[in-house]
Design a protein around this nucleic acid. Structure first.
Lengths: 359, 359
DNA sequence: CTGAAAGCGCTTACAG
DNA sequence: CTGAAAGCGCTTACAG
């Protein structure tokens, strides 16, 4: 290791060429004569030279950094998803020579304030948004201030079609997941299939609920639909209470909006004792808890979502083009022995991901 | 929002002062006459001016960024700790005007290669290390290449005393945690207290094991110590097997090196049926799973650890000083009703953190 | 206390 | 194809 970090200047002097030639070898190699290119490239490698990020940043006005807020993970049960997403995001961003500038924020307002500051300091080129929700103030802010971004999550809104969103987004088709597991349970002979829901909003919770509703309507018409579902907070204790009520109403299987709810449902079923009939439960997110406890669940293609997010954002930073919207299909994982036999063999064990683009 | 981002230059021209004065107002306000300072400060605020990070970086040769590898979270049960740590790290780094440059790496070698590249590009000022272990190649590399860092985790080594480490570290006193819960179980009348261990290495696993050993020796001498402990991988299934063996050997309570192991132990106890005597189990890390299932555990002061890590590193970047070593005390959380009554009231429910510095 | 100057390391037109 | 020049935005001695 040389005491002094090599620079374009020092390398050029050493090689008897101009700074510019060294820079060209790195940035526009085709413009340099092959013998020169090779001689310089070898010297660069030998010196372990890596261009200073600061110099490039100042000159090009591009930080090559992407802002990302680390969402506080209160319950932690669903934390793994965010974890994996972040991990893949970091890996793929690096592969495209982008850095992740991670920050924490206590509220959405603070998150926006951070974007404003980072933007003013020319500190980030773009943003990855997670946990989009109804009334999301971040999206209009980013659009208005012309800070490029991609969101993991549709732009939920009562009025507008997400396909009209003026920005790139990637999301997982939650309705397809709950629809698919509900049909799977139907194929296993269940008709009174309950649904444990978050307070229904026209966003992630409503989407997952809609899948179950669709499958139930197609299977049996509108009969009993309201009586078969219950709302509760994303909390084990409250879910246990709500699941208990559904069990009393005679449900024979339960689909849940999250693994946290499934955990509560599991406790409610356990509480009835081993003499009571078995009630299959399916959660959502396929968290480590579900895996550890052998609960069935619906796995999100998180890795794929992260990669797609990075590539959409990186492409947006490179070229002007119309926004793209990508919806990924989740895959059910059946661990409950009663329903593990595959009436739909294609759904079991393998990760399936389909996407469609709405340009 | 002005179309053009304001600069030191544009602000100075507008105000009829020199660039330097504007810079001084931000960086050395005491050197500017009060009326000027106030006039300039007001204009800065009004313009929403934030100094360009690139300019400062290039000029000062400080990126104000801290490198941190996002550890892959394979099992996910313990993920919450890393999550919380990262969150607090981000928050406190920002408060000191430092950014977190997050990256992923598939191996320790790749992690080191990333440090090398980031260092060559002058991209980071320092590093936060997590998951230190025996034979950790990162520490000597960072020391040798003079890249400032703090580690969350002692520098484990067979020979050396961590107090002699030539770098700052923060760690949690695992032995104090297992020692304390073992004594708590003793105070509740247990003498055959088993221990479920990771393969014993002189690092985190060995540290936690040592606490149990110490409490058992002081309580009952060396009797049976080997027979009361079992080793297993950090895996629910293997833990269940190992816990089953210990139960057959007649243990009446179980202390575990992690919540994952505690989950396995829980399953082993459950498998004996509700007629069998109750066996209290204590895990380690107080993960969301433990909370959701009502398992007792030992909570690490993660928030404190993250804050301390940032402040040690930030201080090291500001001034030359001898390395500091800070050991934080974890706090037992007893959720098992049989042992929840406090023979040691100070250990229950409240977060206790003590630290001592070894300069 | 204030202002003119230098220079951090890079890339990108531009002239040869 | 190669090299001399300009300039991105900032901070820090230094002269007044």
């Amino acid at each position: 290791m040389p005491a002094q970090r090599p620079t374009l200047e020092s390398l050029a002097t050493e090689l008897g060429v101009s700074r510019q030639t060294v820079s060209n070898v790195l940035n526009r190699p085709s413009v340099v004569a092959e013998p020169t290119r090779e001689r310089v490239a070898t010297a660069i490698r030998a010196a372990g030279y890596v261009p200073s990020r600061a110099g490039r940043h100042l000159r090009t006005q591009r930080s090559h950094a992407i802002g990302i807020r680390l969402m506080p993970n209160f319950d932690g049960i669903n934390g793994h998803i965010g974890d994996t997403f972040l991990h893949e995001l970091a890996e793929h961003a690096h592969r495209s020579d982008y850095r992740l500038a991670l920050f924490a924020a206590a509220s959405e307002a603070e998150e926006i304030a951070t974007y404003a500051r980072m933007r003013a300091a020319n500190e980030i080129d773009g943003v990855v948004l997670t946990s989009t929700h109804i009334g999301d103030a971040r999206i209009p802010w980013l659009v208005r201030h012309d800070l490029p971004f991609v969101s993991f999550g549709r732009p939920w809104s009562r009025d507008a079609d997400p396909a009209d969103a003026p920005h790139d987004w990637v999301d997982v088709d939650g309705a397809a997941g709950t629809d698919s597991v509900t049909r799977h349970l139907q194929a296993h002979g269940h008709s009174r299939i309950g649904y444990l829901s978050w307070p229904a909003q026209p966003d992630v919770g409503g989407d997952r609920l809609a899948g179950w509703q669709r499958a139930m309507r197609e299977g049996f018409g509108d009969r009993d639909l309201a009586a078969l579902s219950a709302e509760c907070a994303d909390d084990v204790t409250d879910a246990r209470r709500a699941a208990g009520e559904l069990l009393e109403r005679g449900v024979t299987a339960l689909v849940c909006a999250s693994d946290t709810l499934a955990l509560g449902a599991h406790a409610a079923v356990d509480a009835r004792g081993s003499a009571a009939p078995h009630v299959p439960i399916v959660g959502f997110d396929d968290t480590p808890v579900a895996r550890a406890l052998g609960l069935s669940s619906v796995a999100q293609p998180v890795v794929r979502a992260a990669r797609t997010s990075v590539s959409l954002l990186v492409r947006r930073l490179a070229e002007e083009r119309p926004p793209e919207h990508i919806l990924l299909r989740p895959s059910p994982v059946f661990r409950d022995s009663e329903i593990a036999t595959p009436p739909f063999p294609e759904n079991v064990g393998t990760i399936q991901e389909e996407e469609f683009t709405q340009p």
